[in-house]
Design a protein around this nucleic acid. Structure first.
Lengths: 156, 156
DNA sequence: TTGCTCCTCACGTCACGTGAGGTGGC
DNA sequence: TTGCTCCTCACGTCACGTGAGGTGGC
């Protein structure tokens, strides 16, 4: 891990806090294979590599993987759908980096922001729908639990 | 659909309200292939077949498929995990069918009920954990929406 | 030199999707 | 006879799991 970092793309030269694939996967609770697969399909790019070819991940990379897993686990999105969400988030971050006044095309910027807003509002609605369905499911299970508990007290 | 029903396993001879695989799949919003696959891996058994070999599903069969999809979509269970949950629910239904006093082994029955209760309480906890995670995720997305909205009002 | 972690193929698996070719009742 | 729905193989796909064989720094 003490190797020199190549192609980091870092602007400020101060310690970028990178870690290897094993440490990254352990911290996130995902498999090493999954990390490599996300890279293979173009969802994730490690911020650097060691001279020996080992992948190096920044905190932003780790946050990206976490977002991928949230969209998979909580909403059941496939990797193409996740790609679209991440593209929208990347766009927002990019538009925020260039200030409004500095941008040459203010109208184009406004339009892109509006699209990203719509996408995220749609996401919110999907989250709410899931929470609502889970509430219904919860009450079904709760009813079964109540019935079995009653049957048990009658049986003692 | 007007064919005679074989091997229905129905006790009371009155109209059992069976439907074909196409109608069943459409009602449930699942694919015909998925219905056949659940049968292939032993999760589902159509209540009957026509003389020509067409599958016939009862309301209980449809409810079973719905439960399979809930466990898949809402909790992300695989079919082995779902098999265990359904086995527990089947056991509860069976134990309820034979009344306590009629049962020869009351203690065995009590133990099986206790196990099924534990399983369903664990299920409840998993549902609650999912709802909680979704709440956190929701607030993250909500924050992004707020920020983008603010950027848009500044841009107008 | 010995472990340990990392690398790149590449085949296996789970839960289906998707034709291929054939049967059966209005 | 013509559609329509159903049937059984059987290969394809997505998101990885799992070795196979090799490299690289303490």
């Amino acid at each position: 891990m003490g190797e020199t970092v190549t192609e980091a793309g870092q602007v400020d030269g101060a310690e970028p806090d990178l870690c290897g694939i094993g440490s990254a996967a352990a911290q996130l609770g995902v498999s090493i294979r999954a990390m490599r697969y996300y890279e293979q399909v173009g969802l994730l790019r490690p911020s650097g590599r060691t001279a020996g070819g080992n992948r190096l991940y920044s905190r932003r990379d780790l946050a990206r993987v976490q977002r991928i897993r949230e969209l998979q686990d909580l909403l059941g999105f496939n990797l193409d759908e996740i790609r679209a969400v991440l593209a929208s988030e990347d766009l927002i971050a990019e538009l925020r980096a260039q200030s409004h006044s500095a941008s040459a095309h203010g109208e184009r910027r406004r339009q892109l922001l509006a699209e990203a807003l719509d996408q995220h509002i749609a996401l919110l609605e999907q989250v709410d729908a899931k929470i609502s369905r889970l509430g219904v499911f919860r009450s079904e299970i709760d009813k079964v639990v109540g019935n079995v508990r009653a049957a048990l007290t009658r049986a003692t």
